[in-house]
């Protein structure tokens, strides 16, 4: 069924989402709406289900129940078309070490049917500041450089939604700063971002709306303008302790 209820209010609408791995319940009823251009940060302890949630939204993992509408279309029914609107950056780079950066980007442009891919590859490489190393093998890059190419890969098809699953893992301070800069370039104002993070300070700095996920449920939700960093820290501790 081609659902075309395009609402200007949200680009992602998740209702009653659950995911079980056998008898282990990773997500227990998630409801979430994301507006266009919104920056959402999801905090939570290890094993809270952050990665699972992002993988489900990316169409990598199938949900057990619940519905996901992205751009007004159901992820379950139009998986391939919906995945086209999403860019994923994970703590893994999804890059082939034996290929050059350019070959990796070229491969993913073909997968996403990017038009005029040579130009677009040059463009995204410039955004992440990797133009000079484009023809070197990815395995020769440092972790930070690999992650930059990984961001370029996620930007290739101009996704409306970016999913970032702890992208800072293993990066130094400078690389992290670079990472956030690049996210704000390339038409970022229309792009919705969902980021998962361990780092309360960093997440507070970046996000507009902050969520805390624990044991597969959203246990706390707040707009940044409504509290300060200390407030967030207290709230985080309380909400994750309460549910234990």
């Amino acid at each position: 069924m081609g659902q075309n209820i395009t609402s200007p209010d949200w680009v992602v609408k998740v209702t009653g989402l659950t995911k079980s791995f056998g008898n282990q319940r990773a997500l227990r009823g998630i409801d979430l709406e994301v507006r266009p251009g919104e920056f959402i940060v999801i905090f939570g302890p290890n094993g809270a289900g952050k990665s699972t949630l992002l993988n489900v939204l990316a169409g990598i993992i199938n949900p057990s129940s619940g519905s996901i509408l992205i751009g007004g279309r159901s992820l379950q029914d139009n998986a391939e078309e919906v995945r086209r609107q999403i860019g994923v950056v994970s703590h893994q780079t999804f890059l082939y070490g034996n290929l050059t950066a350019y070959e990796n980007l070229e491969f993913y442009s073909r997968m996403y049917d990017v038009p005029r891919c040579e130009e677009r590859i040059e463009e995204v490489a410039a955004i992440v500041g990797m133009t000079s190393r484009l023809h070197d093998r990815v395995s020769t890059f440092s972790r930070g450089m690999q992650q930059r190419i990984s961001i370029a890969r996620a930007l290739l098809h101009k996704p409306a939604i970016m999913l970032l699953d702890e992208p800072e893992t293993g990066l130094d301070q400078q690389a992290i700063a670079m990472l956030w800069e690049t996210l704000h370039a390339d038409g970022a104002e229309k792009r919705s971002i969902i980021l998962t993070s361990h780092n309360l300070e960093r997440g507070f700095e970046l996000g507009e709306r902050l969520l805390v996920l624990d044991k597969g449920k959203i246990v706390y939700e707040v707009f940044k303008k409504d509290l300060d960093l200390d407030g967030l820290k207290t709230a985080y501790q309380q909400s994750t302790r309460v549910s234990q």
Binding site: E80, R83, V88, Q92, F94, Y96, G97, N98, Y108
Partner: peptide
């Protein structure tokens, strides 16, 4: 094995292909 090394299989599964 190359698809597993940097999570590439997940990258492929996130692509708009069956």
């Amino acid at each position: 094995i190359p698809e597993k090394e940097q999570g590439c299989l997940e990258g492929l599964m996130a692509c708009p292909i069956s």
